[in-house]
Amino acid sequence: MDGALLDILPSIILEGLLVGCVYAMIALGYTMVYGVLGLINFAHSEVFMIGAVTGVEVFRYLSPHIDNPFALLVVAILTAGFVSGATAVTIERLAYRPLRRRGYTNRLVPLITAIGISFFLQDLVRLIEGLWHGEFYMNYPSHAELEHTLVLPMDMTLQVKGLITMVVTLLMLGGLWFLVQRTRLGKAIRAVAQDATTASLMGVNPDSVIARTFFIGGFLGGVAGVLFGVLYTQVNPFCGFIPGIKAFTAAVLGGIGSIPGAMIGGVILGQLETLGGFYLPFFTDGAIGTEYKDVFGFVILVLLLLCRPQGIFGKAQKDKV
């Protein structure tokens, strides 16, 4: 490899870390719901998308009133978090809870429901945005303060919005860790994840714990949505699909159900994807280019599931009769 390619390596690793942070935050939503319900919530990618779209709306309507882009960003993040959290709770209440109540025998039932919700939400957002603004492809406005480039040692560069993404991710993860490990609600969540029936005998209301878990996961997804939108500027009702799949891969990579696993999985996936996307075209003379970037996630997922389905931090599960 020639020197120029090596020189750029630190920047690429930093870029991968950034992408990884966004994946990690989405992955937490998958992992937490999987922890309490044993269900892959396919609709989580749309919860993320709704966060991104809400962020655009906040920017659009508050830009004339708030001059400081940082304050604007904080308002957007909080609003999107609450809207996405509320969406996740609504999904749980309207679709998953009735299924749970009835006690489905076929394990495909909740999965198919989740896919249906996911498709429904994509078009619902498209319809709302279409009726409201006449189009559904949106852009985050650019702010010089957020785009400002910081020069770090080793020729690494980082935009302010990238730095904010990393800081917010760390804050969110720290907050989540505290919530799950140190509060009553966290204890209840862990109890329900371990055994819902026993937890309910100990005075925990599983339904309310599940609803709150959906809210927390949705909140994180919404925050990730705004950060994703600010980083990559373009947002539309279908933009949740690819990040959603990748975040799921990240969750599986770290061992689904495990919170630290989701974070580390996200970062690893971000690294693999950016490094692979950048260096593979050089090694293959352009035969495999960046157009295959989105396929990497899938290939990694398949290989991983074959070799170590429980992920890096998960425990191997045995099927019980």
Binding site: A95, P98, T113, G116, I117, Q122, D123, L124, G134
Partner: peptide, 22 residues
């Protein structure tokens, strides 16, 4: 002009799947 039922297959198929499952 965004209101064109023919373009909202996703919404309709999604709804079919969720309602049937429930």
């Amino acid at each position: 002009s965004q209101l064109e039922p023919a373009k909202y297959e996703r919404m309709i198929f999604g709804l079919i799947m969720v309602l049937m499952m429930i």
